[in-house]
């Protein structure tokens, strides 16, 4: 699982570092362009979705800029992507909000990303949707099976300007959920472009796991 993984090092920042979506500390963290591809249509569990989207393009966002930092005992991950026609919330029956997610093997080691996990090896998703104040934490055991966790410590902040979204996920290294251990943490990314009515399994995503390098904290094993 690690042989060809694109590595994103998480920068060890000061606790007071400005890691807001447009914060100054992201410059030091360094940013990496990660290529994206459409999720496979044949993997969609609904025949209606497969039929309705057979002739429609989706998942066309070419890349997302990723940066990560560890500060104040928490992991911060920023996703930044072009959104010239943002959908900042669900304002009508047929309006779909922009969204993004970070995906992890729930146990931190093994899971199949393409199918959103399976019964034995679930995937955990940190999901932000424009217009909502709190992100969702979901556990998926296959496509269409995700369930929201009622209690979690994940937070997210987002900003849209100059035609792009910047979304920062933030979670304590020791909180319940996917273990954020020192070393390589497999993760994936999905982006939904609301202007193109993308939702559910229709998204731009990383077809394979990336590696998030979580740094060793001073004085910690």
């Amino acid at each position: 699982m690690t042989a060809t993984m694109l590595r994103i090092p998480a920068h060890l920042a000061a606790a007071a570092a400005d890691l807001a979506p447009r914060g100054t500390a992201w410059t030091q963290a360094g940013e990496h362009a990660v290529p994206l591809a459409p999720t496979p249509l044949e993997a969609q569990p609904s025949a209606y979705v497969r039929t309705a989207w057979a002739a429609r393009s989706y998942g066309t966002l070419p890349s997302v800029a990723v940066a990560a930092a560890v500060a104040g005992g928490a992991l911060h991950v920023r996703l930044r992507w072009a959104a010239p026609s943002p959908r900042t919330g669900i304002t009508d029956n047929n309006v779909y909000a922009d969204a993004c997610a970070l995906l992890f093997p729930a146990d931190g080691r093994e899971a199949v990303l393409a199918t959103m996990g399976d019964d034995r090896s679930p995937v955990e998703a940190w999901h932000w949707r424009a217009g909502t104040s709190l992100p969702f934490v979901l556990t998926a055991r296959g496509a269409g099976t995700s369930e929201r966790r009622p209690h979690h410590d994940l937070t997210a902040d987002a900003a849209w300007d100059h035609g792009e979204w910047a979304v920062v996920f933030r979670r304590s290294l020791t909180a319940a959920g996917v273990p954020l251990r020192t070393g390589d943490l497999p993760f994936g990314i999905a982006i939904w472009q609301g202007a193109n009515e993308e939702r559910a399994g229709l998204a731009s995503h990383t077809p394979a796991w990336l590696a998030l390098e979580v740094p060793r904290l001073e004085g910690k094993a």
Binding site: A47, Y48, T51, A52, D92, N93, N94
Partner: peptide, 14 residues
């Protein structure tokens, strides 16, 4: 027997 793609009309249309 095959699904027909549809659309969800807007609030104004409802």
């Amino acid at each position: 027997g095959e699904p027909v793609p549809g659309r969800f009309p807007s609030l104004a249309e409802y």
